[in-house]
Nucleic acid binder design. Structure first.
Lengths: 222, 222
DNA sequence: TCGATTATCCAGTAATATCTGGAATCTTAG
DNA sequence: CTAAGATTCCAGATATTACTGGATAATCGA
């Protein structure tokens, strides 16, 4: 075994991971999977692509050992292959953050302007929940809520929010959270709540980061 | 701005980072740059490729903002663009670690069998140095030592080690370190030292990890 | 067992990446 | 100002990747 050959093999293994995240669609799939396991068709719909194509990308991710599968009846459920993958994805995302400053104004505003809305850190939220001072809204789709949510949070998908406002006492403070820092659901929810006269903030990031921080997670329907 | 367009742009930015590390040679360049800044020709030699090719890869890395440049006379010096890049690289490397178990026995042994040799953690080494109980050997090339090394360490490139052994008291314990967990310099040094009758161990990882952990770094010739 | 549903496999095509040599650019030494 | 050295730009051949649509395999409910 030559030193050069060994090195080549080593860096080739590293590059396998790199190749897996060299495609925007595959990253979007990883982002969806960070919320919990999902079927191929579901993922294809979520990432706006054909089922065949989604299946192909998922195969690629599986060969790189970033995702794992489980069969349930006629469907194949994909999930992230461990927390290491999530840590890696978050590191990638944070590193790419500075690049967003370069792309068009429009995109920048779409994702970054929301930082202006006041956010709550995980620790703050924990404290608030413990004192019972706030209502915590999980504004993701209900299936994602069921797969894991912050204990004490209630599932309020965005399209049900308006209806829910009518039964909510005006003086309640609300903290909304969703998939992560680039998810637009929580910011939209906060906007809706504020225009309805409520005090509302959003969690600075989302469910995956909460779980990765080792904080408690509740599973199943509330 | 449509939500789909915005998402596409977002994930495209993430994928730019992915594409940058989708090639084994580029990863090897990053690995070299983790030790400090180097010129194009130097990097090309270190990664065993043509200068033109190396320059191309470095351009790619620069466009992804993973590296930055500085001109010095007729040469261009490349360096990592901040600690975020190093953190990302380390996360990638750790994630790829499990894949090494799949490749041939030969490669696995070349890099992983060395784990059998007893290692020292960073905290242990700090304590040992403070008590003055050990000699710390930096077995990387001298240029890398000059760009940053553990305070109190002496530069002993591998090819000078044998000569150095003659002036070393037999009862001295030595801790050797090099570029990182996949670098073969320190393990080879330990082997040499032991076969010469010395007590020797190696640091579990290398200089970049030491620096990233916020531990003190000395610059310049000892 | 049969039809419906879900996922994967299998070409074929368009697009992209990699590597190589030679030419062009820039900087310093003399 | 000129020559030499270092780096980048450019053009090409080759290989790899991304996506599409049709065919195939696996599973479930009736």
């Amino acid at each position: 075994m030559d030193g050069r050959d060994a090195k080549d093999t080593l860096y080739e293994q590293f590059a396998r991971i790199g190749k897996a995240v060299a495609n925007p669609k595959r990253i979007e799939l990883l982002d969806l999977l960070a919320q919990g396991e999902r079927s191929v068709e579901d993922l294809a719909r979520g990432a706006a692509m054909g089922v065949t194509n989604a299946s192909n990308h998922l195969q690629t991710l599986r060969q790189a050992r970033l995702v794992e599968t489980r069969k349930e009846g006629t469907r194949v459920l994909y999930r992230l292959a461990g927390d290491g993958v999530l840590r890696f994805y978050i590191e990638l995302r944070d590193l790419a953050r500075s690049r967003l400053a370069e792309v068009g104004e429009v995109v920048r505003d779409y994702f970054l302007a929301r930082d202006a809305l006041e956010t709550v850190t995980r620790d703050e939220l924990l404290r608030l929940v413990k004192h019972g001072d706030v209502a915590v809204f999980d504004v993701r789709p209900r299936e994602e809520f069921d797969q894991g949510h912050i204990p004490g949070a209630v599932s309020v998908p965005l399209d049900e929010l308006t209806a829910r406002l009518r039964t909510l006492p005006k003086r309640t403070e609300v903290v909304a959270y969703c998939r992560g820092p680039y998810c637009v659901l929580a910011p939209q929810a906060v906007e809706l709540l504020r225009s309805g006269g409520f005090r509302a903030r959003r969690l600075e990031d989302g469910m995956p980061e909460w779980r990765l921080a080792g904080l408690p997670v509740a599973v199943g329907q509330a």
